[in-house]
Amino acid sequence: MPAAPLKNVTVSAPDGPDDSAKETLIEVRDLSLYYGATRALTQITLPICPRLVTAFIGPSGCGKSTLLRCFNRMNDLIDNVRIEGAVRISGYDIYSRDVDVIELRKRVGMVFQKSNPFPKSVYENIAYGLRLQGHRNRADLDQIVEQSLRSAALWDEVKDRLHSSALGLSGGQQQRLCIARAIAIKPEIILMDEPASALDPIATARIEDLILDLKKQFTIVIVTHNMQQAARISDYTAFFYLGQLVEHDRTRKIFTNPTQKQTEDYVTGRFG
């Protein structure tokens, strides 16, 4: 963890809209999560606003990724996971019995820590999600694939090799392809789990630019290890420690004038 003295952190993120004006898209209420008998998240309550970037920060094992995976129920894949409390998206409890997980995941996209393009062509990678939604028309597909690649700032680099294997792209390109794949099906929310942690600084910068661009259309929740990254791109930041939400506020506030001592210690690099 690079130690970042408080005064050197540049907070370029703009102030969020007026506090009073904000609505809530994802509402986490009293959420606790257990792996078997171990509690991984404790009583989290947190609102997430639409069309802003919210960053989750905290030391390894603090539960930030686990919380992220609650939003599209990827935790369901693990045995022995038990959840208390509620997560509401647009006011609807996504853990209620009649929720179709697959429908949920179509509307809450996800980008993983390690880029995971399918072993198919660039084009097929993006078309896959669209085909799942029943898009069959070739012209439509072509158009959406191009749009998504343009939105992910990848079009110019891959337009000549759309039909060659996605595994031939560089790491950064693969990750942007995964982002393009996620936005192609037009989710409302995009979850990003340390999307740039495996990339070099230049590729990271491009992903960050992309995120700032995407927030005009999507609500983005990003887990990051890199505090400068959180400072640069997010509007709100939530700091987690040992499965608990320590502080959640405007990013500028968290990085310049945190309320909690723990938060201050962490963002100034005194632990973690």
Binding site: I89, V99, D100, E103
Partner: peptide, 10 residues
């Protein structure tokens, strides 16, 4: 989107 889709029901 319209409210009917909000329910996440397939």
């Amino acid at each position: 989107p319209p409210d009917s889709a909000k329910s996440f029901r397939s």
